[in-house]
Write a protein that binds this DNA or RNA. Structure first.
Lengths: 217, 217
DNA sequence: CATGATATTTTGTGATCACAAAATAGTAAA
DNA sequence: TTTACTATTTTGTGATCACAAAATATCATG
């Protein structure tokens, strides 16, 4: 994609994180990744440091870079900020959506319905993230968008990992439908409220999965 | 402070940015900074890349790193996010403040009063940032705090530069006093509202300075 | 004098090496 | 078997070098 190596490595490691390919607490070692991708340690170092700066990885002083572990407390902290930022983004985006945007969002909602019925976790998560991020992307505020993406990068890994093998609740799409209806009607406040309900329901669902996992381990 | 070089350089460049020591659009060159601090280019490179990742500097593809310029639009984007995040932080922090915290905040308000009367811009800005950041720091949510600090790093440089030589409005402390009264009374919602008024007034004040500058240049 | 092509310099990126601190393995004593 | 100490390996950091692309300077041409 980009012509410099550290950008490519950044994208690779980032998508690896979002896909849940690394375990919480796992150490990402510069030389290992470098030999895996066939490069020198230098661009790997830069990519990891960037991910640390963005909050996607945690780096202790003069120590290895680690995949952060998700606790209930940390999840609630992130959730609190998400509620504020994503609520704002929905409100701003609603009056700015084009006909094409609406069509895409409608398609996402339908795909989530199908995915829930056929129990395709990956399909659900994919459509879910597209629904949210495409909607927020229309808010017209790059600073806001950047902050939201930083938060998604911090929780994304746990979405994918925790959801894998879990039963999808049948209600996981209800609030998306409410939100879409409000969006289509141009009701920004209503869309925000519906989306906040969605985030809340989703957060509770995920906290249950988190409690299950930590109970098992 | 820290034992690794890139951390020191990061702190140095960062405080240089916050002090308004660099001009908007100015290119920060690795080798120049390296020779200025007497190090190799390597830790400078890391420090600059970190600042880019945090949004404090902008880095085009395979090009020099630049100090971003502030436009009205960008300032309004940042302000919109600040309003959401700092409002939330005040609300969360209010019931968590200790007696010592309150004493410190009261002191900040007094120092701002004195600074406005004696027209000491630096004194005002210093007390102002301490008031806000210490208050937010008590919110108990590190994720929120981190996001707020990222935004301050993006506007801080322009505070200091634009304010220098400007006349301080006599009303620049009114809302701090309102906010402090609400905080002291434990009225979280009221504190949030007062702080939002402060941010709004401050933003307008700064947008005037920005318009003045861009009109002159 | 203005303008576009060319040569020179500057600058960021990536590789390799040296080094110190941290992590790990190994060993001996209780 | 457990614990404390030591030796070895691993790992991140910082320096130096090579290189290509970008920025700048130089010069010829209209």
């Amino acid at each position: 994609m980009a012509d410099n190596l550290q950008e490519q490595l950044y994208q690779n490691i980032r998508s690896g994180l979002l896909a849940g390919r690394f375990q919480p607490g796992e150490r990402l070692k510069i030389r290992d990744l470098a030999s895996e991708w066939g490069t020198s340690p230098m661009p790997v170092r830069a990519a990891l440091q960037r991910l640390v700066a963005e909050g996607a990885l945690e780096g202790e002083q003069q120590r290895s870079v680690r995949v952060p572990s998700m606790t209930r407390e940390r999840y609630e902290n992130i959730f609190q900020v998400r509620l504020a930022l994503e609520g704002l983004a929905v409100e701003l985006a609603t009056p700015r959506l084009s006909r094409d945007d609406l069509a895409l969002l409608r398609d996402c909602v339908q795909r989530m319905d199908v995915a829930i019925e056929t129990r395709q976790v990956q399909g659900y998560l994919s459509a879910n993230s597209q629904f949210h991020l495409h909607l927020y992307g229309a808010c017209g505020n790059p600073v806001l968008m950047r902050s939201i993406e930083s938060l998604w990068l911090q929780i994304g890994p746990f979405f994918n990992r925790l959801f894998t093998g879990a039963d999808l609740s049948l209600r996981l799409n209800d609030f998306h439908e409410d939100a879409f209806a409000a969006i289509e009607a141009g009701d920004a406040k209503g869309a925000r409220q519906a989306m906040e309900q969605d985030l809340l329901y989703f957060a509770r669902f995920l906290l249950n999965l988190l409690a299950l996992e930590q109970g098992e381990v």
